[in-house]
Design a protein around this nucleic acid. Structure first.
Lengths: 132, 132
DNA sequence: CGGAATCCAGCCCGATACTG
DNA sequence: CAGTATCGGGCTGGATTCCG
């Protein structure tokens, strides 16, 4: 089955039903990954388990608040695991869960596409704004 | 190269540089796709060219304003093309551009993952909320 | 070190009304 | 039919402060 057919079929699965966005994976899962930091944090953790402050250094422009919150959301979705080491001062390690690791393949495909398409997209924007 | 290596390498490409989010594809492209409607509209257009009102019927809960705006943004990025037929009343057709079609494969992979992982994610959330 | 709590700005997005 | 214009609420996310 082609990619287009896969996507069309995924859409049509929701035709006619009393519409419930919460039960549609595209909305319930992908939209959630689409927030400002989720994909970036998963990419950081793809390299291996990381401590809170190490993640923070890897993503310099994230605020402490959003780092905590995004990690919590990913943990709640079962994509990452959190382990506390009762040292003094405490240290906390985050790692991808088995489910989270299954996301790496499709995510790498998307990131690869984004890198390849980025120059064309930048050019398209310039051309569009030229006219308008 | 493994998916994890691909992602890590993509991240490390930005280490040390004076950080400029606009030049990072993950932020400039993927975050943009992460808005509420973009992926959904691309999925609709994967089936073939569609008129404005047909797209609207396919995504019942989008407002006219957001449909117009999201289509404009996708057109600006060069992912879709817009053609006006000067009939009376006018009709406008939208279709994926060649560049837009190259997104279908990675997008289908991600949507496929989301469908497969959705049940596990729902269960993870329930378990998490149980404890908290 | 890794948070939690609070406050607040911006903008995303929806609802509504009007147009060529 | 396919928009545009305007208004306004709510949520995302940043800055700051405090805590174990």
């Amino acid at each position: 089955m082609s990619a287009a057919e896969t996507l069309t079929r995924s859409l049509n699965a929701w035709k006619g039903q009393t519409f419930d966005a919460a039960r549609c994976p595209v909305r319930d899962v992908i939209d959630h990954l689409g927030d400002k930091w989720s994909t970036l944090l998963i990419m950081v953790l793809a390299d291996g388990p990381q401590r809170f402050s190490a993640i923070r250094r890897a993503v310099p422009d994230i605020s402490q608040r959003m780092l905590t919150q995004t990690l919590r959301d990913l943990e709640r979705d079962g994509l990452i695991e959190r382990e506390v080491f009762p040292t003094k001062p405490p240290s906390v390690e985050y790692r991808l869960s088995p489910l989270g690791r299954t996301l790496l393949d499709p995510l790498a495909a998307l990131v690869g596409w984004a890198e390849g398409a980025h120059p064309q997209i930048v050019r398209a924007r310039t051309a569009y704004d030229q006219v308008a």
